[in-house]
Design a protein around this nucleic acid. Structure first.
Lengths: 340, 340
DNA sequence: TTGAAAGCGATACCAC
DNA sequence: GTGGTATCGCTTTCAA
């Protein structure tokens, strides 16, 4: 089906030289006269020559391709990360193969198996949680960016944020504005499971450090059976209907935060005054909301950058500088904590 | 760098048979005894054999891979389409190679050239506008889904909506609610250039058909230099500040609509009552807004389905049933046209 | 500077 | 039912 294209052999024939010479010219390797170079190049252009990637890969046992495994490209945060990683890799001469695992273990296995057969030179996990079965068979360098899933392979690097500290800082921000009854809202289910646990741990630690009581009624966890937005709103309503009250909300995600804000607004609560809310990821949701939502920015450029740097080092045969890279985060205060 | 994997030859040695037999067993082709089959399969499994994709592709001059070219994966509508197309192709045994062109002609050229050398079996353009230079060299089947860019190749199919009719219907919806001074807001720039022109044409035609005057002051076009959201809000403010007035807004996109709604709300206009607004794409933006935004749903499942069906037909060597497929759209009325 | 030839891994034709 | 072998397009050594 694919184009029966002109091969290096055809070019050689037309130029009256050998395939070796053509290959040299095309790859700017070895030596050749200026005359042959011009001739070969001209003919190649005239014939519309395009190198056969399969042949090249077969011969070189390398595809100059990196697989990007992400649970959900339609997620704002992940897709930004994917795009940035792709850009950096492209600049380094690597193509990216984007794989959407939909957080489905089986699908991921299938992918990884396929990727191995496709001879990808490396793998970058972006976001989500992974199980490990197939991973054992992988012997290309692997980088995890904001991805949970220890495995203990040799050429492997983790890049991410300090999620516990992040949860701590979110809580601290609210506390700084005078909040003393702070709720935690998550619609985790399985998606970010472990990462969310870390954040929750930070929240718990802050409460403890500051002598605030831990009220089980203020820990709102949804099963993530519907849109985060709807579910978060529901959790808030159930909580308030049950007679609990709070003056601050740590929302694990901007979508969740938006749901919380909407629910509060509907109940006539002055968000940013009576109740302060902070979300996470600095996504579009936090910016389009009225009032605008305070959030935590995790530097995607940094995450991508550090991850790719480590990967390229490993691809070059070097040991990466660190196997665990922590990128700093930054609290962005907006109307839901600063008030009007 | 890539795994120095067990080859078919190794399996043959260990099983004491020829590579031909191993290949047959592995591909369930030709004939072989049950005994050899079990033996070969067992050894292959034991050795963790994975077929070398490059070798296979080289030999078969086909990669069972389809390239998906989209201008912007972070766009809600496109990414949904990409995901659906990918799913359908996977089910048909094809892998997808997702390429983000960022609507950059040069980058697209680079991609297409690369794809050809990678021997993709087909190309699916999803959204956006394309120029054509490199396309001339392509001789694999091409499908355009919601994509503008005629080329006139032989194996080529267009799948999309009737954008002019869509613009017409949007206007008609507002008209049906009594609107008579209807503005058109677009932040097009180059992105959907032609598609938006079609929609605008539908809007013009409706005005004409119903004897409404065309007021140049109500045609708001932004250069798309910033977020659609911000820009749309700005356009609305400028328009109103200039003394124009309107009772309906056709927004070419839900993000644009959201910007319009926000601007109006800020100015104290009762959206859905004094001014009615309709957007397009039925994206998350139209659903999270307060008030919820009326919109036009373009059936992504249908678009993906029709496109993939046509592609598979062409890959199978058949002529596709139609070269231009128009998928119906559907107006979804919400609070911004129905009122409270 | 240039070329002949081996070989990457898998497939498929054609004998046996 | 099974196996020898040419072949896909390219890179790379080694000689000339």
């Amino acid at each position: 089906m694919a184009k029966r294209s002109v091969s290096i052999y055809d070019i050689a024939q037309l130029a009256g030289v050998s395939t070796a010479t053509v290959s040299n010219v095309l790859n700017q390797k070895g030596s050749y006269s200026e005359k042959t170079r011009d001739l070969v190049l001209r003919i190649a252009r005239e014939q519309g020559y395009v190198a056969n990637f399969a042949a090249k890969s077969l011969r070189e046992a390398s595809t100059k391709t990196i697989a990007l495994l992400t649970p959900d490209v339609s997620n704002d945060f992940f897709s930004t990360l994917v795009l940035k990683v792709e850009g950096l890799l492209r600049a380094a001469g690597y193509a990216s193969y984007i794989c959407n695992t939909a957080n489905d273990d089986e699908r991921e296995d299938e992918y990884v198996r396929g990727l191995l057969s496709k001879q990808v030179d490396g793998i970058v996990y972006i976001g989500g949680v992974t199980h490990m079965p197939v991973r054992a068979a992988v012997d290309v360098p692997v980088v995890h960016i904001d991805h949970v899933g220890a495995s203990g392979m040799n050429r492997e690097v983790y890049v991410g944020n300090d999620m516990a500290q992040l949860g701590y800082d979110m809580t601290a921000t609210l506390y700084g504005h005078g909040c003393r009854r702070i709720a935690l809202v998550s619609v985790s289910a399985s998606f970010y499971r472990t990462a969310e646990h870390d954040q929750a741990a930070g929240y718990y630690r802050f409460l403890q450090d500051h002598g605030l009581p831990l009220d089980e009624g203020l820990i709102l966890e949804g099963p993530h059976k519907q849109t985060s937005l709807i579910e978060a709103a529901q959790l808030v309503n159930e909580c308030l209907d049950a007679g609990y009250s709070f003056d601050g909300v740590v929302a694990l995600g901007d979508r969740v935060a938006l749901g919380v804000v909407n629910a509060l607004k509907t109940r006539g609560v002055a968000v940013g005054e009576d109740v302060r809310v902070i979300g996470m990821d600095d996504s579009i949701y936090s910016r389009i909301s009225t009032p605008t939502i305070s959030t935590v920015r995790r530097n995607t450029s940094d995450l991508a950058d550090r991850g790719v740097t480590a990967l390229l080092a490993m691809l070059g045969g070097d040991e990466p500088a660190e196997s665990h890279v922590i990128v700093p985060h930054e609290v962005i205060e907006r109307a839901t904590t600063l008030g009007a």
